[in-house]
Amino acid sequence: MVANRRGKARRREPVRHSIPESRLRADHSVNRTVTAQALIDGWAIPGSHVRVRLARPVDLAALRTFAEMAGTRVEDEVADAIDAGIAGAGLIIGMRDGHETFLSHVAEQFFTHQDTGRQVAFLHLTLALVAEDPGRGIVGALLAYPPVGVIGQFLAQAHRIGVNPQQLLVTGAIGLVRVKALAVAEPMRRQGLAAALMECCRQVYATCKYLMLYGQMPARPGLADFYRSLGFTVLQKREGFDPWVIFGVHSQILPESDERMFLWDRPMTHRIQRHR
């Protein structure tokens, strides 16, 4: 898996014998750090031909299929943003130009679209990833973005709790993100592709200094161990968490039905407060 390989690479000795063609085709020199350019061109998975990259308009049909496999759908607004080339634009800027430029870009988007629809700003922070195999095409996908519904609930209470709505809106958009869908084609499972998609997602939002990343999963055998292996905390059924470190007020985010939540909170922040 990608997530836990953080040690230094071993120094290679000069090759003194022939190398099998399969090894020559594989990219074993991959940089495990996700960069803005790698996100566009394709981030190579160690020991694999598969690359993870931003979804393009041509990938929309496949992205919809994998979202359905994950039990959800690609919203029309997200599809339009991918088609227009603005999905993830703010994240690319944050990874390439630094956090201050990222904050300026997000603030500009909210200001520019304050009358015509703040949804555009959230689309700039939406991450739609696909895993592409040279021979098979798209073999996996991930969709993540700041949870508009959750942030909207805090906005509805802004005046009551004495918080500036605009400030709360931006704070939520740049601090909290939800993994909405993750799926891999059946023939390609158990090869580290899901782990690579999640690690790429985590790195992107961590680079942009998001404080919390979370998602929900069905109570299926093996899933809890999978997310724990990637460094996520897995909560119990009906257990939620309090994102007060982001919004400055206490509330709670709870899972739906009998699903369980997994979450990652940025190191050095206050510990999350959980709720049952």
Rank of each mutant, 00 (worst) to 15 (best):
M1L: 11
N4V: 12
R6S: 05
R6L: 13
G7I: 14
E13W: 10
H17D: 09
P20T: 08
E21L: 14
E21K: 14
E21N: 10
L24D: 05
R25W: 00
D27F: 10
H28F: 14
N31H: 00
T35V: 00
A36M: 02
A36T: 09
Q37H: 12
H49D: 10
R51F: 00
R51H: 06
R51T: 07
L54E: 02
L54A: 07
P57T: 11
D59K: 11
L60F: 03
L60P: 03
L63H: 06
F66A: 09
A70G: 04
G71T: 07
R73I: 13
D76V: 13
D76P: 09
E77R: 14
A79G: 04
D80N: 12
A81V: 04
I82G: 02
I82S: 00
D83L: 12
D83T: 15
G85N: 00
I86A: 07
A87D: 01
A89H: 14
A89R: 15
G90N: 07
L91C: 04
I93C: 05
I93N: 04
G94S: 04
D97E: 15
G98A: 06
E100P: 08
E100D: 15
E100M: 10
L103E: 06
L103Q: 11
V106E: 01
V106A: 01
Q109S: 11
F110H: 06
F111D: 13
D115C: 11
R118F: 09
A121L: 07
L123N: 11
L129H: 03
V130Q: 05
P134L: 07
G135C: 08
G135Q: 13
R136H: 05
R136W: 02
G137W: 01
A141V: 04
A144Y: 00
P146V: 03
P146C: 04
P146Q: 04
V148Q: 12
G149F: 11
I151C: 01
L155H: 01
A158R: 02
H159Q: 12
H159D: 10
G162I: 12
N164M: 02
P165T: 09
Q166E: 14
Q166N: 14
Q167T: 13
V170M: 13
V170R: 12
T171A: 15
G172W: 03
G175I: 07
L176V: 09
K180L: 08
L182W: 01
A183R: 05
V184L: 03
V184Y: 00
V184P: 02
P187Y: 00
M188N: 06
A195V: 11
L197H: 05
M198F: 02
E199Q: 15
E199N: 15
Y205R: 03
T207Y: 10
Y210A: 07
M212C: 15
M212L: 15
L213M: 04
A219I: 09
R220F: 09
P221L: 10
G222H: 02
L223N: 02
D225V: 13
F226S: 06
F226G: 02
Y227I: 07
Y227Q: 03
E239V: 14
E239Y: 08
G240H: 01
G240Q: 01
G240L: 02
F241R: 09
D242Y: 08
S257Q: 11
S257D: 12
D258Q: 09
E259D: 11
R266G: 03
M268S: 13
T269Q: 10
H270Q: 13
R271P: 02
